[in-house]
Write a protein that binds this DNA or RNA. Structure first.
Length: 244
DNA sequence: GCGACAG
DNA sequence: ATCTTGTCGC
């Protein structure tokens, strides 16, 4: 019970309160990102996602320096890399402590996701995040943030792009195209199923881009999104629905 | 200056 | 992210 309380205390004391402070945190931590492969193929892979109770359309929040207080449910689901069967799960209910600001998205979800990760019995060797990694204005998206803070290899698998453009890619599963921003390769557009819209993959921490793409394709054998993402999405919505 | 803008 | 019905396709 001590651990559950501790996470809530930490997210209110050490967390940035303004956009300027948050950007400073990103600038400070970005140098810690390791974009190379560390370790072998994972045995356990985690999918992470957050669901919100509020209804804040983009633009509804004028200032970044104002606290939002949406109810949320953060979920982490651990799957066996080989069978894609679930081996562990955790859900944490709470409130956001930061408004949604493009580029500062991680500050909305990281505290709750870290709390959920602490509830796990099995430690995952790869975090598949619902958002960008290096494909970010300051090269420090959610996947980089979670990777650096936990030390666990992480990748970003987003449904849409944030920064960067790419040429058209083949229509078949497995087709890819470099995501380029300001002349830099920041990620890849990946077709995970024939004819579906691509998934945007980028490095989070301790995993190279080619490996990140391989991981996503392995985790998405049947649907557009990785099974990890799908499982976490289902779990956080369920947690929000019948949570306290 | 004017839009665009992960979830 | 969230609000939302039926509907086309495998």
């Amino acid at each position: 019970m001590a651990s559950e309380r501790a996470t809530h205390v930490r997210m209110t004391s050490t967390w940035p309160a303004t956009a300027a402070e948050a950007i400073a945190v990103q600038e400070k931590l970005r140098g810690q990102v390791d974009p190379s492969d560390v370790g072998e193929a994972p045995r356990y892979v985690a999918g992470l996602d957050v669901a919100y109770a509020g209804n804040w359309a983009q633009g509804d929040r004028p200032a970044a320096d104002r606290l939002a207080a949406d109810r949320l449910a953060a979920a982490v689901v651990v799957l066996d890399w080989q069978t894609l069967e679930e081996v562990d799960r955790a859900v944490v209910l709470g409130e956001t402590t930061f408004p949604y600001v493009p580029g500062l998205f991680a500050f909305r979800e990281v505290p709750a996701l870290l709390a959920a990760l602490e509830q796990l019995t099995i430690t995952p060797e790869l975090l598949v995040c619902d958002g960008q990694g290096l494909a970010h204005p300051r090269r420090f998206g959610l996947a980089c943030h979670l990777g650096v803070l936990t030390g666990i290899p992480a990748i970003g698998a987003a449904k849409t792009t944030f920064v960067g453009t790419h040429v058209e890619l083949g229509r078949e599963r497995g087709a890819t195209a470099e995501l380029i921003d300001s002349g830099e390769v920041v990620g890849a557009a990946v077709r995970t199923q024939d004819g579906v819209k691509p998934v945007y993959v980028s490095v989070g921490h301790r995993v190279s881009l080619p490996t990140a793409v391989e991981r996503v394709l392995h985790l998405a054998p049947r649907y557009r999104l990785p099974e990890t993402t799908r499982a976490a999405d289902h779990l956080c919505r369920e947690g929000l629905r019948d949570g306290q």
